[in-house]
Every structure is written in C-alpha cells, then in structure tokens.
Amino acid sequence: MKKFISAILLLFFFSCAQLHHVQLGEVTSHPDYVQKPFDIKVNEMGINLGEAKALSKAFLSAEGSKDAENIATFISLFQMGPITGNPVYVKDYAKNLIQIIYEKCPSGMVTGLMSVRETRKYPVISGEIVRVTGYCLIKKGS
C-alpha cells in the first residue's frame, strides 16, 4: 500500500515540459547603450478533462464516476477550436504582458524580445505559461 501511495505521489509531482511556440524579435546592439536583461513569466492553471475523467473512474463509485464523466463531457462541449495546452478558465491571464514589459523597461527601448509559450504538465492539471525575455536598452551614463 505504501509503495502504491509513493508511486501516486511520485506521479503527481512528476512534470513534463511541452513547448508550443517560440517567437523572436529584432535584436539591436550599440556601443552607446547598455543592455539590461529582463524575464517575465505569467501562468494559469489548465485542466485536462480526459485525465480527470479517468481518475474519477478509478477513485469514485460507478455512479459517481458516471456523473463526473457526464460533467466532463458537458464542459468539453464548450471548449472547441484550436488550442495550445489544456483549457484554462481565466482567458485574460496574459493580457497585461505589455504593461509588465513597460514597467520593467520604462524607456520603452526593448530589444531581443523572445516569447515562449509552454506547458508544465502534471496529472490532471497543468501550468499554462507565457514567458517573455528581452533586453532593455539604457543609454550609457544616464
């Protein structure tokens, strides 16, 4: 029994990284400017309904698992179209990225911008991540 619980715990903390999309922007270097790197990460929890259904079958009674399956099927009816990663329930989680970049680089002179869309997968849930790295150009001596 202990072994079984350990295996379940191990599975739960075991995560896989999945890369969906990478985009690079223009890169500018100039001797009069210093490049200050910045790194921004926003994430939201995604839910894998298929895995939730499978888990409910394993742990709930026959009636309970059927109800859970019906609920999962009902929810999935509203989640159509192309997606990256698992569905999230806060659709605007990456909306303030531009604002955060502006806060990190008030001069607005941003270069070497790389945006990465990735997923950290755990059983049933996942971290749906948008990561942006870049450099802020600051004039030397200012």
Partner: peptide, 17 residues
C-alpha cells in the same frame, strides 16, 4: 531556446538583426 538571442547578438555586434 534561451541562447538563441545571445547567438544572434554575437553574430551581429554593434548592429541590428
């Protein structure tokens, strides 16, 4: 993927990619 920008910077010092 993190080194990609650094690689491009090395290939174009004092310029814009």
């Amino acid at each position: 993927v993190d080194d990609a920008v650094e690689d491009l910077k090395k290939q174009c010092p004092n310029g814009q990619v």
